[in-house]
Amino acid sequence: MEWRDQGILLSVRRHGEAAAIIEVLTPAHGRHAGVVRGGASRKLAPILQPGAQLDLAWRARLEDHIGTFTVEPVRSRAVHVMNDRLALAGLNAVTSLLLFSLPEREAHAPLYARTETLMDLMGDSDIWPLAYLRWELALLEELGYGLDLSACAVMGARANDLSYVSPRTGRAVSRTGAGEWADRLLPLPPCLLGNGTAPDAEIAEGFALTGHFLRNRLAHELGGKPLPEARARFVERFSARAAI
């Protein structure tokens, strides 16, 4: 059993004296694990950094075996994040959420494409936080928990003042349609309705919205496991920046 693909390195852990077990996200083979012989060596360890883009060859005797990877670097993203604590926290949040939420060996090509684009933006601090927020929306959508922000759940398509989201259904609600129920709804930041830029405070409000559905829909369906701490650390760090 063997295949070749490109992928994003999600995690690496030492295996024995010199090998490593890595998990990658690929467009055609999804989240996939394998052993890299010599992965802990001086030659390969600097290459095997989370976020790295790798050319991969996987081989195993049987399909359900963990198998082995041969890896070649395509590009490293470490240079974009190592001197930027917020970007490093964001990268850790992305890889942790993917490991937390994606089933093994199940392809999610659209989400892979969004993830690769987001990773490549992490050198631009003015752009990537909003891209990350929209990536969390895409993650929810890909796994069947998407928000419907296309029209007001009460007034229909004629409403043009979408301002809230139902915490139960994930559907948008207009200010007019919310009425006396507004205090029971989640604020909908305008940045999730358009393609432009947004101030940090508005993006932080978006993280509160996506966080609600990550916790109460995605994590709940995965057995009630807590979200990765890396996501909370990133949001806390970003919120501190937004408060300045």
Results as ranks from 00 to 15, higher is better:
Ala19Cys: 06
Asn195Trp: 09
Leu54Asp: 03
Trp128Thr: 10
Arg37Trp: 13
Gly30Gln: 05
Leu149Gln: 04
Arg114Ile: 02
Asp200Ser: 14
Arg158Asp: 14
Leu9Phe: 12
Leu143Asp: 02
Ala131Ile: 00
Asn83His: 15
Ala60Trp: 07
Thr176Asp: 12
Tyr112Ser: 04
Gly206Tyr: 09
Asn83Ser: 14
Gly156Thr: 07
Arg13Glu: 15
Ala151Val: 06
Arg4Trp: 01
Leu88Ile: 00
Gln49Lys: 00
Val154His: 09
Gly146Thr: 04
Leu97Thr: 10
Leu48His: 06
Ala157Tyr: 07
Ser150Tyr: 03
Leu193Tyr: 09
Ala18Arg: 15
Glu23Gln: 11
Leu54Lys: 02
Val24Thr: 10
Glu202Leu: 08
Ser163Leu: 07
Ala131Thr: 11
Ala198Trp: 10
Asp55Arg: 09
Leu9Glu: 08
Leu227Met: 10
Ala159Pro: 05
Gly177Cys: 03
Phe238Met: 01
Pro226Val: 11
Leu162Phe: 07
Leu10Phe: 07
Asn216Leu: 02
Arg42Ala: 15
Asp124Ser: 12
Met155Tyr: 05
Ala219His: 10
Gly196Lys: 11
Ala18Gly: 13
Ala60Arg: 09
Asp55Trp: 06
Val12Pro: 05
Gly38Arg: 09
Ala33Glu: 11
Ala107Phe: 11
Glu180Asp: 14
Ala20Tyr: 04
Glu116Leu: 15
Leu25Cys: 07
Leu91Pro: 01
Arg114Gly: 02
Leu9Trp: 11
Pro226Gly: 10
Leu162Pro: 01
Asp120Met: 10
Glu63Arg: 13
Leu130Arg: 15
Gly223Ala: 14
Ala40Asp: 13
Ala40Glu: 11
Ser101His: 08
Gly206Asp: 10
Ala208Pro: 01
His29Asn: 13
Asn216Ala: 05
Pro73Lys: 04
Leu185Pro: 01
Pro189Ile: 12
Gly194Gln: 14
